[in-house]
Nucleic acid binder design. Structure first.
Lengths: 338, 338
DNA sequence: TTGTACGCGTTATCAA
DNA sequence: TTGATAACGCGTACAA
């Protein structure tokens, strides 16, 4: 393999000069630069990045830890990260944690071993203490996460408020028995979405029935399964707010298979605005998370950390939006009560 | 940062011995090994991987070039690659080409610069000559690709036969005016799926109408748009075979919005068996590609290349399967002809 | 502006 | 089985 000394020899300069041409061209006169570039061209020289990384103790690579790349939400965020990263000259190492906390621990080793310059974790399961500990030693940014008062950069939306909006939309349509399917409750995100739901119910003077709040895990299957349970209730809900679009689709299909009409007999609101939520029948009313933008922003923040900025602001809340489609009906429902 | 020589000093051995303990433990006696491990523990030593990679000119990292990670099909294949890679101690570098051929060229630089040990390209746009040229110099495996007689390992399904099966399913239901939405025709995959369609039509004595074959780009939007065109025909088709599930959903929705019933008025078959194809209404009849398995297999082949195997067999065809759901009706359609 | 020469931390070779 | 030592290729003081 042709190396820097080969180029130097051909161009009749030292390796130092070749190095300068590559990394600090202003420090070299036009003619010598020309000579060197010609030699590089002629020999088809490519710098050995491994040597460079070793020498500079940096890799221009970041690690993205994702629960599961097959999930549309994460795939889109990763898309945003990759887009921004490649524009800024960074490479993206992908790691599926499969929701295993051990795997998240393992990813920290990557940084300790200098294999990456920093990392972005999506929906981490690690406890706040551990995360803070890592953050004090290495550049790390979280996305779709929420920590209470811990000083780590986090990119997210306002999960409480957006869920409140979603629930209030159902309330505004006249619904009173509104169920909520949560995400896994170990995550603060799921708790916050639930909190938004509760807040909307309380502020509108509606009763919260504990048997109308069921825990899911964001998947279609869990939405389907939990909806079945709700349908078996003596007094089933007239509306469901699901904490993910996947679950919302499970809810809709369970209702359909049970002979119900959506939105006629049951109104459903989802969360995420994944691509298929608009393709689905009926198209889902949902909260749009700017997934691509969140990924992009997370990468921007990480780069700022690389540059040594201290990022006084740690919570980066991006705007969400209630997208009204057909899954909860657009017309007011005639009030069945009072 | 604590380095190998620190460990060596504390354990009263040479760095060579420390290195051996880490990478070749059998070559060291039990007591010295013990000493060394203790010192490692005590100093909380982590090997500097950059130095190791540099010294060994290998990175244990592979590059995956993907047109777009947001596409479910690619996300699942990447999932399979990542799964296998992490089991075998490899890391996965992700690169979105966004279907830009320049970006694919760029990814080759990664290998020339030794940043990765090898690469897997999904649905490459690069021409065969270039690919062959790379393959002669570096370990590379392709997936969801097809090359005519070129000696590069490729993982795929039999696109011709599976498309033939899909089309024949429609034929067996009594359809005669069967349209086909192709993928982008620069890709041999799309051409092959089209070939399978044609073959089925011809072998069953059905006429091929050129205005019933339209080119799409695998997206929902293109399926929707092209279906609109078909609906405007004087004599629209009674069935459509779309070369991707995304397009098939576009077809179904265009038909629905046009007031048609699927499968009652129009039978639709898709391709890929993405997760949402079964959630969609009606659930899509489709050809299942073993996406996760294809990713896994591609990674296995790449590892075999790393080991210096020559892989006499270059085409690795995985089994596909026709999944019959409801989008084309299960009952025989009464014959409208003869 | 350019060149000399050393060091980054690990692994491999060779000798003991 | 272990140790001494020389690379690996690049970047950067420091000197010229």
């Amino acid at each position: 393999m042709t190396k820097m000394s080969d180029v130097a020899r051909l161009a009749n300069v030292s390796t130092a000069t070749v190095s300068r041409v590559l990394r600090n061209p202003e420090a070299v006169t036009e003619p010598t630069k020309h000579k060197v570039l010609e030699a590089i061209e002629e020999l088809n020289y490519q710098p050995n990045m491994l040597a460079r990384h070793f020498r500079r103790t940096e890799t221009n690579t970041i690690l993205v830890v994702v629960p599961n790349i097959i999930n549309t939400v994460f795939a889109e965020i990763v898309g945003g990260i990759e887009d921004e990263a490649s524009k800024k000259g960074y490479r993206v190492l992908l790691r599926n944690s499969n929701n295993q906390i051990d795997s998240e621990y393992g990813s920290i080793e990557h940084m300790k071993q200098r294999q990456v310059d920093g990392m972005i974790m999506l929906s981490p399961k690690l406890d706040e203490e551990t995360l803070l500990d890592i953050s004090n030693q290495y550049p790390i940014v979280l996305a779709t996460a929420h920590l209470d008062g811990v000083k780590i950069p986090v990119v997210s939306i306002d999960n409480i408020n957006s869920s409140k909006k979603a629930t209030e939309h159902l309330i505004s349509l006249g619904h009173k028995r509104i169920a909520h399917l949560t995400g896994p409750l170990y995550s603060l995100i799921s708790k916050n979405r639930c909190k938004g739901y509760r807040r909307a119910m309380i502020e509108n003077g509606l009763e919260i029935y504990s048997n109308l709040i069921l825990e899911g895990d964001f998947t279609y299957e869990s939405g389907y399964k939990q909806m079945k349970k709700l349908l078996d209730l003596e007094n089933p809900p007239t509306a469901v707010f699901a904490a993910s679009d996947d679950m919302a689709m499970g809810v809709v299909n369970a209702a359909k298979h049970h002979g119900l009409n959506v939105p006629g007999d049951l109104a459903v609101v989802g969360f995420d605005n994944i691509k298929f939520s608009s393709i689905f029948d009926p198209p889902l009313t949902t909260i749009a998370q700017p997934m691509f933008g969140m990924g992009k922003r997370a990468m921007e923040l990480l780069i700022r950390k690389f540059k040594g900025e201290s990022l006084s602001q740690t919570e980066h809340v991006l705007p969400d939006k209630l997208i009204i489609r057909e899954s909860c009906g657009t017309k007011q429902k005639e009030s069945t009560v009072v």
